[in-house]
Amino acid sequence: MSFPDLSKIPAIDKLGVEERVSRFCKRSIKNAAKKHGLHLALSMIDLTTLEGKDTEEKVKRLCYKAGHLHGSLEGLPNVAAVCVYPNFVRVAKKELEGSGINVASVSTAFPSGQSTLEVKLSDTKFAVEEGADEVDMVISRGKFLSGEYNFVYDEIATVKEVCGKAHLKVILETGELDTLDNVRKASDIAMYAGADFIKTSTGKISPASTMPVTFVMLNAIKDYYKATGIKIGMKPAGGISTAKIALQYLVMLKETLGNDWMNKDLFRFGASSLANDVLMQLEKQESGIYQSVDYFSKD
């Protein structure tokens, strides 16, 4: 891998992106397609808790939820992973043992990324040693915005080395990047530096993931695949709270990257409340009756 040729990165026209996205949102997903899509969405969720007030108990409950989504529905998939701070990796790992559900850890001075490289590396190293299967790092947005692209690239590449076997998701924090052109540029830098996934947001900055931003990143992934033959994963995070929005993302994924990407190895939703809404919709599909949140466990 080497630093990408920034002069070759295509420009992005925002209105064009928005128009395309509106087409995705107009797809009508009904019946069997809806059920299939919702199952797919569930299987792609990184069930997330990233609060200052998190405790081991909270993490344990979340892990239990991850493996027991909703008893009354048959044949539900598991979520893909549970995403926590590094200090909860060990407990999550233990809770999820044998479930097939991964543990993802944020790192590199999440969410701001404002620290030294040493701290970021030791943060990552700790998470990996605790057993994280996946590492969600943040890029240095300040450096990016001041044009120090090599710095950003080097940082990602170094973190990647420390990750070892753990998969690296690189959070661009698109809500701070100002333009879609920057989103595209940051995506390319992250992929060329060794990201396994690129991810929109920390969830701590508004706006978090949007469909236009995700669409630009999906196109970057597509171009990267065409150029290198390597499939990079995509993780929109934050703001995806309903089944309806999740299905629109899946439509976008299908029509942009195709069926190869329609699985948890290459696509994730970073979300905390999405799972319950998906479950409610599935229950409605099964029973034909509109549901209440009170019948779905919150953890």
Partner: peptide, 16 residues
């Protein structure tokens, strides 16, 4: 839990 969603490809049902 069975998990078919990972393998079969997703297509839209007709929505007339």
């Amino acid at each position: 839990m069975s998990d078919t969603s990972q393998t079969s490809s997703w297509s839209y049902a007709s929505a007339p």
